[in-house]
Amino acid sequence: MIWLGLYNYWIVIVLMMIGFYIVIAQGNLVKKIVGLNIFQTSAFIFFISLAWKEGGTAPIALPGVTEYSNPLPHVLILTAIVVGVALTAMGLALVVRIHEAYGSIEEDDIHEQDEYQ
């Protein structure tokens, strides 16, 4: 049962693979960004999960509480989420510019246009 008990980590792996697959297999540039987001989210869940402690509460000093979850990974992931937002914005901004320049956001279309150039 220890395997099932670690189900957070299974979800992390499943999400990571789904995200990774979308990035590789999708020809649509916006969908690729979405895949990248799912991929990054799996890393976020991974960090949040590893901070959890059995019987621990939120890391706030309360009388009578001795077990806390580790707050550090939470803080790290707040930073990483900000980075992720910036990356998504940057990626989508590039897609907008690609659409202006090529009139398409399908990878095959774009490569075809460049070959005829």
């Binding site: 990774f20 990035v23 540039l29 690729k32 990248l36 991929f39 990054q40 890393a43 991974f46 960090f47 590893l50 990974p73 990483a80 990356l87 940057m90 990626g91 590039l94 897609v95 510019r97 690609i98 320049a101 774009i110 460049d114």
Partner: peptide, 23 residues
């Protein structure tokens, strides 16, 4: 722009791998 987009996708995968390793 397309080159930058490709770099963004591959670079993000690279740094996310680094993040997981650090975890």
């Amino acid at each position: 722009i397309l080159a930058s987009y490709q770099y963004l996708v591959m670079g993000t995968i690279g740094t996310t791998f680094l993040l997981i390793g650090i975890g």
